[in-house]
Write a protein that binds this DNA or RNA. Sequence first.
DNA 1: CTGAAAGCGCTTACAG
DNA 2: CTGAAAGCGCTTACAG
Lengths: 356, 356
Amino acid sequence: MGSSVDKRVTLADVAKLAGVSKQTVSRVVNGSENVTDETRARVLHCIETLGFRPSALARQLSTGRSQTIGVVSNGGQGYLVTGVAYLGMVRQADRMGYALLIKEMMDFSRGSVRAMLDFLIERQVDGVIWAGPEIGDSHAWLDDFDLASLPMPFVAINARARKGVDTVSFDNFEAGRLATRHLLSLGRKHIGHIAGPHDRWVSQQRLEGWHAALAEAGVPEMARNVVEGDWDVTSGGPCLQRLREICPALDAVFVSSDRMAVGVLAEAHRLGLRVPEDLAVMGVDNLPESAFLIPPLTSMIQDTPRMAEVALRLLVRRICERRGEPYPEACAKPESTTLLHELVVRESTLTSGRGR
Amino acid sequence: MGSSVDKRVTLADVAKLAGVSKQTVSRVVNGSENVTDETRARVLHCIETLGFRPSALARQLSTGRSQTIGVVSNGGQGYLVTGVAYLGMVRQADRMGYALLIKEMMDFSRGSVRAMLDFLIERQVDGVIWAGPEIGDSHAWLDDFDLASLPMPFVAINARARKGVDTVSFDNFEAGRLATRHLLSLGRKHIGHIAGPHDRWVSQQRLEGWHAALAEAGVPEMARNVVEGDWDVTSGGPCLQRLREICPALDAVFVSSDRMAVGVLAEAHRLGLRVPEDLAVMGVDNLPESAFLIPPLTSMIQDTPRMAEVALRLLVRRICERRGEPYPEACAKPESTTLLHELVVRESTLTSGRGR
DNA sequence: CTGAAAGCGCTTACAG
DNA sequence: CTGAAAGCGCTTACAG
């Protein structure tokens, strides 16, 4: 309802009331030693009285640093992952004294990328996390862009490693290989793969892992048992059907997301297929629910919040390095920027066990 | 790697090169009409040549507006909801030309609240969305805080309505009542409720709705069939067990989240209880997976992204009102700030149907 | 320990 | 249509 007097209280107001210079007030605010206890007390009292709150904007303008990190995501693609990743980043940023400025991109044309970078530069963010998943040539601009010309460090997550670009990603090739090996180790002879969209780097990597495992095992003929899903639970059922058309004897399926695997389990149930006896099923992501599906779902743990944290630490380190400042302890330990999935085996691939 | 020359290109640099005043460059940058085509062309060319990018910080300092909205969430509590809500807010903010500054709170003591508000004021955000769920007395400060004294508008989501505070929330009382009525309408005689944590406003409201529905139906004796969960899937099973101890004849259960309901379905399956014949089960949230559980889960649709969007629109409207500026079309339509859940009935409560 | 001056890079009236 | 001046609210050397 009522609007307050919009007159901001400034350093100068405090200075006048306390009968000192602005500089002295600034010293008190920033905890400088070089102030008499008496002066400090008086200034603090005046700050309290006037309800003075320093303008971060003004400070940023004069110091040239914003204590803000820009995070660029993309329009609801990667829905789940983005949401979870945000939480990991917010927490880590908070710990290190940074705020997150969140922006979203709808397309990845050169123009849009340039506009987004300009926006971040104009806002003077101290660093950038490029968080949209790599789709088609969405990251192609990185190949011929001189990142060093940006006034701030840049880290990409969930993207292919590139020369001269700091990236933090999961090893999806290894994930695909491990998953496939697991199904092979069960003695299944007719394994299929429900992949994510083929234009996603993540999907491509898992698919390559799948191929590698089949080649290693000397059963390359299975490689054709692949259909393309869209990550969504709704695509699980239809994908299973298509896979069974390609390979009627299908007895195991490596699904590229737990979401889709839920759809697969539902469809298998509808078809009267027993899991895992008739069909072993495994996913990727290890959602909280996955251990409680019927049957409990074997999956690949993907610790997304951790990826977000690692990326943020790396970025803060780069920020400090560029400024020639020491970086926080937490950023010091050389941390792998390639994270591994971890297999968690449950009933959906275990004929005998009681896995949970 | 290489570091760029850190000399920022400013308005003054462009002005000098173009042989005009800073003011004229400013006019060109801000698309003012009062510039000769020839001058404009020359200035634009110089901007291009120098790679000039205006400093948003400097502009913010002189204009007093930041085109930034502060979003305050809380430490991973409400994990799922927060993640999903972020996405709705980011999208809407982007459309309206605002960026989101995300902050997290770990506790809700007066001191922390004050510090957070100060931080947001210092950053000169144009408005604030208070997005942490109401837990215990986490929002009590609002009762005796003069929001009008804040220099910017404030909107709380997922919180109890308070005099003088703009809030956007779901009607959880109605949700609880609708859910309970649905189970009663099936003719079930021994219904139980797995609530969320009792210190959550959301849980309390749903619980009251549960009580109201039972009273209306003249079966208040069922009201004692309540146990407390923690929202997490892991609590579903243990809660079902406790409920069956309280009420051995239990034949229906209203679970306060789909997550917990997944645990309930798993436990029921383990116990050999048929759903819905022996036990009708319903949840709240309508997760994407819920339609594909075994059996498909009846739930209450809660459109969290929409809540986030509505809140953001309301906030932008308040921002404009306070400044005496016209607000965007999208913010104009008087929108309810109490959103309703919607019942979606599936097999888990339908003995005959094939609902999906 | 304290202060006067200049500067960060824009915008806002006010002249012409 | 264009410009000189003052101001937004801090901080950074530099004196004393």
